[in-house]
Design a protein around this nucleic acid. Structure first.
Lengths: 154, 154
DNA sequence: TGGTATAACATGGTATTTTATGGGAATCAA
DNA sequence: TTGATTCCCATAAAATACCATGTTATACCA
């Protein structure tokens, strides 16, 4: 993966009656620039959709392949879940993707979808769930500041 | 990151009705020279906006990628908070960036923004809050001079 | 050193482009 | 045919680039 990229920011977009959502323009730019595709799957740990570049899943596959932990059953199971669940999404000329019923239901998304950048990947939340989640995270930070020092290195 | 750079000085610029602010010219020079971009997010520890180069976040993303596995819970929470809040800011031909409502509100910035250099990053304060903060810092130094030794850098 | 010319900068305003989003037609599949 | 998916067009709003001006800082010269 030569070029670097980051999925950033938190953006709220509407989901219309057909299930279409605009992918944030920044995200689109990344996909175009890298000539890759967006892949989405149900998060294994939270009630949200998770997305990344197809390249990232490629990397995951390779990592598993080369893993010294040949017998890691857990990892194996998890990857099965992800690869089995993941689906490629292309956006139309206006930048929209069409999420599936399965994904929308799992994330409890109705009218609006919240895109949350995570660096190499991103998540899509329902408005309600994201409010709660962000609150939880900020709460956690307050009580555990030491582990969160992105500034410290360099 | 080959080239070195430092965000320095304290500079007050006006914020217009649209939320536009001139990025200090020194900062602009750094961004240009390194071919990077400015990224801003709400400080986790103070009522101010924090900014850095996208390169710094890139490095963080890579570190996280390499230090924890794909399914790590720590990675999950961390990345949500940092990357979800961070936003890329490009400046126009006159050197201005457009800060978002969210950031301005969090830092309680109305008409003027105070840019404070912090080396590898910088902060943006409201005029009022910065006065207080600087006072607090100087007060702290006076009473705690011994701790100002090489080890305690930041 | 003092004064002036020049360049850089901050800042207000305006124009242009991009983006999100709704709706409809065309295409495809069950 | 019916339902769904893709493609295309239209529009309003928001983001961005561009232009103009006064001010400050810098360079230059006597």
């Amino acid at each position: 993966m030569r070029k670097t990229f980051l999925f950033l920011d938190t953006i709220i977009n509407k989901v219309d009656a057909k299930g279409r959502v605009s992918l944030p323009s920044d995200y689109r730019a990344i996909v175009k620039e890298l000539g890759s595709e967006i892949v989405c799957y149900r998060s294994l740990t939270a009630p949200c959709i998770e997305g990344c570049l197809e390249d990232s899943l490629e990397k995951l596959a390779t990592d598993i392949e080369n893993s010294t932990d040949f017998f890691s059953e857990t990892q194996d199971d998890l990857t099965n879940l992800i690869f089995g669940d993941a689906k490629r999404f292309t956006f139309d000329s206006t930048g929209r993707i069409m999420l599936t019923e399965k994904l929308l239901q799992y994330a409890q998304i109705k009218e609006s979808a919240v895109f949350v950048g995570k660096g190499r990947k991103f998540q899509i939340w329902s408005a309600e769930n994201w409010v709660k989640e962000e609150q939880r995270l900020r709460e956690k930070v307050k009580q555990n500041r030491p582990t969160l020092k992105p500034e410290g290195e360099n």
